[in-house]
């Protein structure tokens, strides 16, 4: 019974609701400022943030970085916090053809693997951490 419970995907948790204003989500998903150091670790992780698969960024210890998307350098001056938030949460709202995954979305996806069903790529807290880190890239 314990094994069964452990092997089942965690119950889907409802996502925090948010409001899109223009090309941004002005309000924080958590109401608490994110942690830039944790955000950097998420961005650097190939298992968690996956960011460096497509983007390059000022994270020299990660040698193999992608070139499929704009460099992360300067993201904090190019975009406001709210603009970064929408681009992380669901960038396809801005460009349906984008290869940028929606990091905070669980509906409208097809054939999601059992381990990932009902879960966003990042939690609301993690989204805020990544925003805090990206804001330091000026």
């Amino acid at each position: 019974m314990l094994t069964l419970a452990a092997s089942m995907p965690a119950a889907a948790q409802p996502l925090v609701s948010y409001e899109v204003v223009g090309d941004a989500i002005p309000q924080s998903l958590t109401g608490v400022p994110g942690d830039a150091a944790r955000g950097r670790a998420i961005v650097a992780s190939r298992q968690k943030g996956l960011c460096l698969l497509c983007h390059s960024g000022p994270i020299p210890e990660e040698r193999f970085q992608g070139n499929l998307a704009p460099p992360l350098d300067g993201a904090g001056s190019r975009w406001s916090e709210g603009q970064l938030r929408l681009r992380l949460v669901d960038s396809k709202r801005l460009n349906p053809a984008s290869i940028m995954p929606a990091y905070y979305k669980i509906d409208g996806l097809q054939r999601v693997g059992a381990a990932w069903q009902g879960k966003p790529v990042l939690s609301a807290e993690e989204i805020e951490d990544v925003i805090a880190y990206l804001k330091t890239l000026r």
Binding site: L50, L68, P101, V112
Partner: peptide, 16 residues
């Protein structure tokens, strides 16, 4: 497009 990352084969192998 498929999976949690919502990518199709074509997005990588035709477009990129």
């Amino acid at each position: 497009p498929m999976g949690q990352l919502g990518l199709s084969c074509a997005q990588c192998h035709d477009d990129n």
